[in-house]
């Protein structure tokens, strides 16, 4: 598997480490007691689809950027990769 890094081009799988579902970017604030269900879902529950999956990869042995990679979990075909920073900014987060 090679990941098309948006800045560096195709990079080998072994330069990256994997975190999981890209929804992990959207951590709920969960300061009040009633938010605990949302926090539990964020930390522990996953969609885990067989098919297209948006997921977080870290270019640890490279430029140390976080990427959001879109990949088919049935075939390992990579459908796209963006900088996680751009994804977070586009979603209205400050970083």
């Amino acid at each position: 598997m090679r990941i098309p890094h948006p800045l560096l081009g195709l990079r080998d799988l072994r330069e990256f480490t994997y975190l999981g579902d890209a929804a992990l970017i959207d951590r709920p604030e969960a300061t009040a007691d009633e938010d605990k269900a949302a926090l539990n879902a964020h930390v522990f529950l996953r969609d885990n689809p067989a098919g297209t999956h948006r997921e977080l990869w870290y270019h640890e042995y490279g430029d140390r950027s976080w990427l959001v990679v879109t990949r088919d979990t049935r075939t390992h075909e990579i459908l796209g990769a963006e900088l996680a920073r751009d994804v977070a900014l586009a979603a209205g987060r400050d970083r």
Binding site: G20, D21, A41, L45, R46, D47, N48, P49, A50, T73
Partner: peptide, 18 residues
């Protein structure tokens, strides 16, 4: 291996990755 798919048909999300 396929627990998430099967249990999704019952409306559940699981603490599992395949």
């Amino acid at each position: 291996g396929a627990s998430s798919q099967v249990m999704a048909m019952a409306g559940m999300r699981l603490p599992i990755e395949s």
